[in-house]
Design a protein around this nucleic acid. Structure first.
Lengths: 393, 393
DNA sequence: CGCTATTTCTTCCTCGTGTCAACGAAATCA
DNA sequence: TGATTTCGTTGACACGAGGAAGAAATAGCG
């Protein structure tokens, strides 16, 4: 039942071929000349590299399109159906998965609540989900390159393990091993926000941006970094812990035990606490958004100021990050990003106020419309990235 | 009088030759086999690349040293006297310069107070200093590779201009142009802290560290970053503005006009303010150190707590940076680093308290004994780096 | 002393990838 | 129809890298 993995890397072994593929994949249809320019090569080099990619069907040539004067260009584009990829996101209450083609188009999606967040439960759910996804789309099953997994917390990507996750209460959990054994497929694991970074870099808002951050807003504040064109993980894979930036020595207690972390000031819990302190009954962040958007009277005022306060804290945190890293773009994602209408103005104001020199002006803030399978799609990108030899990202 | 610049890069044009030179330069004498291992090459490749470097005298071969059984190794080392380099640091009240050999050994040093900090005054002082340095060491003058300049503030290294410097009150000042015209030498400009980063990476504490920061403590808080082995400057060269990390919304006003920046909490001025508020008369930071170290009674207590408070703020700021970047090392430098005995314990405690997971344990804090020409020596390293094609750092 | 083992370095070959210059291909324009 | 323009290919060549094999220079040992 377990399909044999296709060795994409055998065909696209050389660095330059992988780069050609990656460039065509992310930068849409390109003529040979355009491709050469983008890669800093001379056209003849591109010509020499192409045959294997075309013969094996990784790239296609479209009909010639007249282009004013001169010989028309033959556009190259990837054949998205050549391979498929599975992406899995492991959350504390559910495991969600997608199967996508090479362009990260979702072909099928599944989701499964899990009874507890033990590694055994989560990983067997992930394996089951993978099997069901493959069974559901048999035409994709024999072309699967591998499985990408996004896990919240401190992930050692090379070893395929999760070192520590507060959200999942995991400690040194081997993720790649069990999944590889259960599915017979190559498995790539990374931090969940890093999967978003790769996805944005390849197919999203980070396509032509050399330095950006993806900041997820929700129960916690997460952050993934792409610096000078490369995913940045830090010395031990811990980079991006924006959520625990100390912002206020007199601030509220954070779940990590310290005072005034960004997460304690701008996470869901901070908004809810603000409402409760003001005597407005409210249990979930969705409810808080409803009150702020369409509530009435003082409850609405309180709710709005709760989100504004969170936005101010987030703005100060992002300003700190911009000061330190001089990013070109920050992409706000995650479940909480839908409340951007509520915290956005305060965020921008605080960012502008605390950013040094041109740091805020240099940095675009972009809100990514949160689709439900964004996480899993990001995880799928991990495998595509791995397959082309990390030529990009 | 102006010596003709030697085109080092013409001889060491190829990437790999530059890498060989850089590796021998920074990693001491190496045999061909060791060199190959370090560069991830096979020994024969090293053999093939060496002849031009040896012929032109950039590298020397020492006598064979018996090495137990087997053919003895012939060690390679750089010939530091092959070229010389000028390093200039432009400060608000003085310009200092050094002339060094290829190993950044200082051959001569000069310093000149400047009457005002206008670009004209500072740059003509820098040019004069360069001329005097070369006149002073005629044996070095005909072998000068170029001039490296370190300037505080926001520097566009590629364009050779200082975009903005609060300390110097400069705005879009062309630094490289006038100096090149006045000296007839190639000029490399960068942020002053970045020159320290390069120096540490090449000859100092960052030699084998892939991700570290140099944090300068003094009137202001500066920071230069080396991330994943490369100097990180950010999108517009502004990266490293650690000094204006917002740490306390209720904190004191910063010179930048905001409240609670790290610089306002941990810079020299913060310490002095603390003393003044407590009624201890004290004009300079050196005086404050004296009081804290060898003062008496309540004045000493106040001074000590002033430094401790600064250390706590710095620790919180560094914790934020560690959380975000998961650095392997932080090197404390700058004039204020000599007060490490006074603020160090508080710094470490705050760092440990606010760092997430293993971020603090993963990160060594190192204090660099501040030598007087550290800055200018760093600027000299800029040129060496440029000459070898930025093969390292 | 001569032999072998050992380590270092070199020589020679092939391969992959890049450039350059010249040519062929396919359209528009006159 | 032919000139022009742009795109792509072909073939000759350079160069860095790897691999196999051999030369160089030592220590140890009978």
């Amino acid at each position: 039942m377990s399909p044999s993995p296709v060795r994409f890397s055998d065909l696209v072994s050389e660095q330059s071929r992988a780069e050609i593929f990656a460039t065509v994949l992310t930068s849409g249809p390109l003529s040979r000349t355009q491709l050469a320019q983008r890669l800093g090569l001379v056209p003849s080099s591109v010509t020499r590299m192409l045959p294997p990619l075309l013969e094996h069907g990784y790239l296609h040539e479209s009909d010639t399109a007249p282009n004013g004067r001169g010989r028309p260009q033959k556009m190259l584009h990837v054949n998205p159906d050549k391979h498929t990829v599975v992406g899995i996101k492991i959350g504390p209450a559910q495991v969600s998965g997608v199967i996508t083609d090479m362009a990260a188009n979702v072909l099928a999606r599944l989701e499964e609540p899990i009874a507890d967040r033990t590694p055994e439960t989560a990983l067997s759910a992930a394996a089951a989900l993978t099997r069901r996804l493959l069974a559901q789309t048999p035409e994709a099953a024999d072309r699967v390159l591998g499985v990408g997994v996004g896990v919240s917390g401190h992930v050692d990507s090379a070893a395929g393990i999760c070192r520590y996750s507060a959200l999942l209460d995991w400690n040194k959990v081997d993720v790649a091993g069990p999944l590889r054994a259960a599915t017979g497929l190559p498995v790539v694991v990374n931090n969940d926000v890093n999967t978003l970074v790769v996805a944005e870099r390849w197919f999203g808002q980070g396509r032509d941006v050399d330095s950006f951050a993806v900041v997820t807003v929700g129960p916690g504040i997460g952050c993934g970094l792409l610096l000078d064109g490369a995913l940045f993980s830090g010395a031990t894979g811990l980079a991006g812990e924006l959520g625990h930036l100390p912002l206020d020595p007199a601030g509220p207690m954070c779940s990590c035990g310290r005072r005034g972390c960004l997460e304690a000031l701008a996470g869901d819990r901070a908004v809810l606490r603000h409402l409760q302190d003001a005597g407005v009954p409210c249990a979930t962040i969705t409810e808080a958004m409803d009150i702020a958007r369409s509530g009435s009277g003082s409850a609405q005022t309180v709710a709005r100021s709760a989100f504004a306060e969170a936005g101010t804290a987030l703005g100060r945190g992002l300003a700190g990050m911009c000061n330190l890293l001089n990013l070109q773009k920050i992409i706000l994602a995650g479940e909480g990003a839908v409340a951007h209408d509520l915290f956005g103005p305060a965020l921008n104001q605080a960012l502008e106020a605390h950013a040094f020199s041109t740091a805020a002006r240099d940095c675009d803030i972009h809100v990514d419309p949160v689709t439900h399978d964004l996480w899993a799609r990001g995880a799928a990108c991990l495998v595509i990235r791995e397959a082309v030899g990390a030529a990009i990202s």
